[in-house]
């Protein structure tokens, strides 16, 4: 099957441009409660990196949105699904690769996440659609592919850079 998404050109995910040392890997059940615990584990695991409070905030926002989406959409009909999170610190920030075996993103691409129009009556304000906007505001080099039944999303958070 032809891989979909903007990573279709990349033949192997094993070729990682970033150093493998200091890699953190976490495999979570796809539930709201496990995502909450996983976020705490990752924040705790990154404490030695000495990230600033606003860097941790950006990271938690992006990760929470991505993981919630996997629970709610990718694994909508598969409550027993697993989420695999890998992260490693490089000179230019924290690199993430998040995989799941749930439903492919609609159209094989992550949503654009456009800024919602708020110049409207209160009754017409949007109650959703903020997630991908936040992800795209805060994450860099976001790439997605659906390969061999697996969703792979990679991105970089420009935090914890070596100065």
């Amino acid at each position: 099957m032809r891989p979909e998404g903007n990573l279709a050109h990349q033949n192997s995910w094993e070729v990682c441009p970033q150093p493998k040392e200091h890699e953190l890997r976490l495999i979570l059940p796809a539930t709201d409660a496990a995502v909450r615990r996983g976020l705490q584990t990752i924040k705790h695991g990154l404490e030695p990196n000495g990230l600033a409070a606003d860097e941790v905030a950006s990271l938690e926002i992006v990760l929470a949105e991505i993981l919630n989406n996997i629970v709610e959409h990718a694994y909508a009909d598969h409550p027993e699904g697993l989420i695999d999170i890998r992260l490693s610190q490089a000179d230019d920030g924290l690199h993430f690769l998040i995989s799941d075996r749930g439903n492919m993103m609609p159209g094989g691409e992550p949503p654009l996440g456009l800024q919602a129009n708020l110049n409207c009556d209160i009754a017409d304000l949007p109650e959703g659609g903020f997630g991908w906007f936040l992800i795209r505001e805060l994450a860099h080099e976001l790439r997605y592919a659906h390969v061999d039944g697996e969703n792979k999303l990679s991105f970089r958070m420009a935090i914890g850079q070596k100065r």
């Binding site: 926002i61 919630n68 949007p126 659609g129 903020f130």
Partner: peptide, 16 residues
């Protein structure tokens, strides 16, 4: 200490 997009949506819903 933390609010995600679902939480934000819920606060907007409370306003509406």
């Amino acid at each position: 200490e933390f609010l995600d997009s679902s939480g934000l949506g819920a606060v907007v819903a409370a306003l509406k």
